[in-house]
Design a protein around this nucleic acid. Structure first.
Lengths: 337, 337
DNA sequence: CTGAAAGCGCTAACAT
DNA sequence: ATGTTAGCGCTTTCAG
């Protein structure tokens, strides 16, 4: 309960002015070695820490980044979040979390975001209305969309190259001798889901094929499982299912193996998307397209800081992913990675 | 870039004073209906939002809670974090994330925590030094430890009853006819790991048994897998392994089944702790002790708010968990839950 | 109930 | 390089 130490206290004890203290604690400022020493000494003795909030009020920069997210149950996000936080901390920023609860309107979130004077926003929720993005940009707060893009080029976005990824999956599947490929897609309202589906279609078309079924599971594992049931019991059973997200792919594999008694990949091949940690565990051993999380995070941080600190323009980046070949899909000889 | 709307602007447009505006936006303050109406109208027209940071400077309350965490790869945390954030938002607080990076010293984290004037701290990192806790409490910032406790009763803590949990596992295992129980424990420096181990020992002792092996895997799945290998190849192979955390239990099951070719539970029973979502998936179908996450979060928020807003004293709470019986461990008839 | 005035803790010109 | 002087946007006595 002794947190009443102010810069004035330090100044007095060090025999200097408040400005001097301020300068010592401001990276780009000028202070003589002697002054710095005295100030640091006094500060340590008193246990002084500059008040970031007060600083934010006057500088207009809070060094706080708002993170808008929903559904940490998608295993792709926890890891990304961890890396993002660490990368930001290294630059002297911190994440303030805005979890979009189920019913809770986006309006409230926007209010809070603005009230806290965040310097920027990372929007990592697929379900996020464009309202948020536009209203914040309007207020002068740069927002970068993570793992989702918008056609509007005035908005910053970082994604992996989902179209190329979908196409790579198609090529792999065809090379493996599959002829009846079904696709259980991510939400078609989201670029991520759409691009993967389009990539698959393009890759299939290259060889004169097309998917025998494409269903939107909205990134929901339960829905994906249900679709898998229907597809498999359908007349023309697929020999491969490309699932637009690992989390859904696990649910599909579970359904196939444990409920329908089918072998993966013996009866049906399954390919996912993301390469979350679980995909590499032997229980699933899922062939999947790896999103370059680390580079995506790097790009996100760069974009954000470029806009905040350098005032640069928004840009969009699509980083290449990589097919990780494991055992859940039949493959041609020589395709072992 | 029009975020320069200040309370003065609103005051002018509404024909009142800044104080009036302030009062309208302060829950407990007095303002006539007429004034409130005028102010709200002007505020909406101008797009005014009170600046939380400026408010924080003057009130001394930031309505920000620091979250200190590391290792979101433990699937127990993402869900807890999501719930925590939502619960806090409902009370008008937000989480500021402090991710303990690997090498990054705790000292820096403390500095930042204090600088941002957080009203309270949730410490959810097992690896966190007591230094942080004591220094923050010293500075008058309440911290509640989540999923970990300290013997010092002056510190707030929320855990599940890990001792009772460990004991329940022992009883279940014994009832299932197991006689050679091994324990791959969580970090013995952490209360969570210790209590579970002690509970198991007590439960075993009740029946005149004791564990044939107890090894500390420090919550690390790789280490757990390695220990599993050693234990199993040892002379006296266990008929059951109690693993002190689901994440480690999965690794142990993988090792047993896919590497050692053993059946679970046919050759060896495995029981975990936490009940993360994956435990319920058919690929693992893990019998485990469920931690009451929702209630733990509720208690955490209550404690925090009690201390922040009511100035109440620290307290500790140990919530009861519940054994969730699935298929990874042999069980006695009638034990199906 | 309302406005005027006095800060909260800090930084940013401006002189010196 | 340092101190002085103004604020940043807001809340909170204090009169009325």
């Amino acid at each position: 309960m002794k947190d009443k130490v102010t810069s004035l206290d330090v100044a007095r004890r060090a025999g200097v002015s408040r400005s001097a203290v301020s300068r010592v604690f401001t990276p780009g400022a000028s202070a003589s070695a002697e002054t710095a020493r005295k100030v640091r000494e006094a500060a340590d003795a008193l246990g002084y820490r500059p008040n970031s909030l007060a600083r934010a009020v006057v500088t207009g920069r809070s060094r706080i980044i708002g993170l808008v997210v929903a559904g940490l149950d998608n295993q792709f996000y926890p890891g990304a979040l961890e890396q993002l936080s660490i990368a930001l901390q290294a630059e002297g920023y911190h994440l303030l979390v805005f979890m979009s609860a189920a019913g809770d309107g986006i309006a409230r979130t926007i209010e809070d975001l603005l009230a806290y004077q965040v310097d920027g926003i990372v929007a990592a929720s697929v379900e996020m209305s464009n309202d948020l993005v536009s209203r914040c940009e309007e207020a002068g707060i740069p927002v970068v969309m993570f793992n989702r893009r918008q056609d509007d080029p005035r908005l910053s976005a970082v994604v992996s190259d989902n179209f190329a990824g979908g196409r790579a999956v198609a090529q792999f599947l065809i090379a493996g001798g599959h002829e009846r490929v079904a696709h259980i897609a991510g939400w078609q309202e989201a670029s991520t889901g759409r691009d993967r589906a389009a990539g698959l279609a393009a890759g299939l078309a290259d060889q004169g094929l097309s998917a025998i079924a494409v269903e939107d599971a909205r990134f929901d594992p339960d829905r994906a499982a249900q679709i898998a049931r229907e597809i498999v019991n359908d007349g023309a059973r697929p020999d491969a299912i490309f699932v637009g997200g690992d989390r859904m792919a696990f649910a599909v594999m579970d359904t196939l193996r444990f409920e329908l008694g089918l072998g993966v990949p013996d009866d049906i091949s399954v390919v996912g998307y993301d390469d979350v940690p679980l995909a590499g565990w032997p229980a699933y051993d899922l062939t999947t397209l790896r999103q370059p999380v680390e580079r995506m995070i790097g790009a996100t941080v760069d974009m954000l800081l470029d806009r905040i600190e350098e005032g640069k323009c928004p840009r969009q980046e699509a980083l290449p992913g990589q097919l990780v070949i494991r055992g859940s899909a039949r493959r041609a000889r020589g395709w072992k990675h």
